[in-house]
């Protein structure tokens, strides 16, 4: 579904990533680790087309990223659910509208989707927060809301950047459980994280590959994680 072949990315004259190759297939589960500033977020952005590689080839759903115009790119993004580390929301809209935003921008009638939206909000434990504004939410609620927004369009791929960065262990387990559940439904999952405990917990429940960025290159991490 998403393939990077010998991809490199340079910024300001220096290499951030070099010779990166990775393939996200249906039902695959990947963790991406590495020190801060190693290029994890950059790699995720290359995967969902927010950045174009300066070398190599990136394909989204069998289409070269460079061949996509802006409208085609928008359509591709509807097939990829992204959870940002900082959980960006539209602060003036109620939570339910924020979660339903992918449906809104793709022209779905929200009245028809009300049942699904309610079910999804219950699934992420936000059933009672329909009308809350994003600034009123706790860190954990924001992370769960971001995950709900990422999956509301039933995307083929879910990409999450430090989804448990601002939550306690219990909440991170809950979020992980949600992602594993989605993976079992056939979605490809890619999670960038520092949290080795989270990776260990996931590996006990799902077959996950752990990738590590080191010296601008992507390596398969050891099985002892």
């Amino acid at each position: 579904m998403i393939t990077l072949e010998n991809v490199g990315y340079s910024y300001g004259g220096g290499d951030l990533l070099s010779d990166v190759s990775v393939k996200l297939s249906p039902g695959s589960f990947h963790f991406l680790t590495g020190p801060s500033g190693s290029g994890k977020t950059t790699l995720l952005k290359l995967c969902y087309g927010a950045l174009l590689p300066t070398r190599g080839r990136a394909t989204l759903f069998n289409t070269d990223l460079r061949a996509l115009d802006r409208d085609q790119m928008a359509l591709m993004r509807r097939r990829i659910g992204v959870v940002h580390q900082d959980c960006r929301f539209l602060d003036h809209l109620p939570l339910a509208d924020n979660i339903a935003l992918p449906l809104t921008v793709s022209g779905h009638n929200l009245a028809d989707e009300a049942g699904n939206l309610t079910e999804l909000m219950q699934w992420v434990g936000l059933a009672g927060r329909f009308d809350a504004l994003p600034p009123e939410l706790s860190g954990g609620e924001r992370q769960r809301a971001a995950l709900a927004r990422a999956v509301i369009m039933s995307p083929d791929v879910i990409i999450a950047d430090e989804p448990t960065g601002n939550v306690d262990w219990e909440m991170s387990q809950r979020l992980l459980h949600l992602l594993i559940e989605l993976n079992r439904m056939g979605r490809a999952v890619l999670i960038a994280t520092h949290d080795l405990a989270l990776i260990r917990a996931a590996k006990s429940q799902v077959q996950a590959r752990v990738l590590r960025i080191s010296n601008h290159k992507l390596q398969l991490a050891g099985a002892d994680l």
């Binding site: 409208d71 359509l75 935003l101 992918p102 921008v105």
Partner: peptide, 16 residues
């Protein structure tokens, strides 16, 4: 700008 970035992130076309 941030609103626009969020909209692009969730698949909004430029026309929208």
């Amino acid at each position: 700008q941030q609103v626009i970035e969020v909209l692009r992130l969730v698949g909004a076309r430029d026309g929208y």
